[in-house]
């Protein structure tokens, strides 16, 4: 199952690399506006990456890849009566279909989040040296100074929770899929939409719990 995670690697890396670049650009703009200098751009971008955008964007990308995949797969199994066949063999399809996907999804969400944040920071370091004139060493120093260990732990908790949401919502959509090829499309669409929305809402709740209280 974690094969799915591995297939998503290039897509997620490329995307998060660009997110890293973009963060530097945007923050440089805002810093210049408010503080009139841009020494803290790397720190801000890294903190925002780890706390927020890293897990959220990685998991949204995973949703469209793994989530839609799971819903479509289980949906077509239902349409072609494979689920009924499993029932007849008295195989519990939560155990058989959902649990392996859950473990796979949580594992991929966590590892990919960490790796993609690394890629994004790398992209950020590159652009910072180009555009702001900080050396990569300085960049790394500020990043490590501002990103605390607790941020990384919280980021992993977020990733794990998002990773849980993906297969469960998707599988639910697959199991409740109607008949015909139209229903499979519907299930996959619903899975992506509902999971993405849940991720954003869960992110709000978690951020609130972690940082605002």
């Amino acid at each position: 199952m974690y094969l799915l995670g591995v297939q998503s690697v290039p897509i997620i890396f490329v995307s998060l690399g660009f997110v890293g670049l973009m963060m530097i650009l945007e923050l440089a703009f805002h810093m210049r506006l408010v503080l009139k200098h841009d020494a803290l751009v790397p720190a801000f971008s890294a903190v925002l990456m780890v706390r927020e955008l890293g897990p959220v964007i990685t998991c949204l990308l995973l949703t469209s890849r793994i989530g839609a995949g799971i819903a479509a797969e289980i949906g077509s199994m239902k349409v072609t009566e494979q689920l009924d066949a499993l029932k007849m063999l008295s195989i519990d399809f939560i155990d058989y279909l959902v649990i392996p996907r859950w473990i796979g999804a949580v594992f991929s969400a966590c590892t990919l989040t960490v790796l993609s944040i690394a890629v994004a920071l790398f992209g950020g370091a590159f652009l910072a040296t180009q555009k702001l004139g900080t050396s990569p060493g300085e960049y790394l120093n500020t990043v490590f100074f501002f990103v605390k260990f607790s941020d990384v732990v919280r980021c992993l908790i977020k990733a794990a929770i998002f990773g849980t949401l993906i297969p469960f919502i998707a599988a639910y959509q697959g199991f409740t899929c109607g008949t015909g090829s139209a229903a499979v499309g519907e299930a996959a669409t619903q899975a992506v939409v509902r999971t993405s929305l849940s991720i954003i809402i869960a992110d709000f709740i978690l951020t609130y719990l972690f940082y605002a209280i």
Partner: peptide, 11 residues
């Protein structure tokens, strides 16, 4: 390609 194709297209 059938219902599988629809799912793949969405994904």
């Amino acid at each position: 390609g059938g219902s599988v194709g629809v799912g793949a297209a969405v994904q």
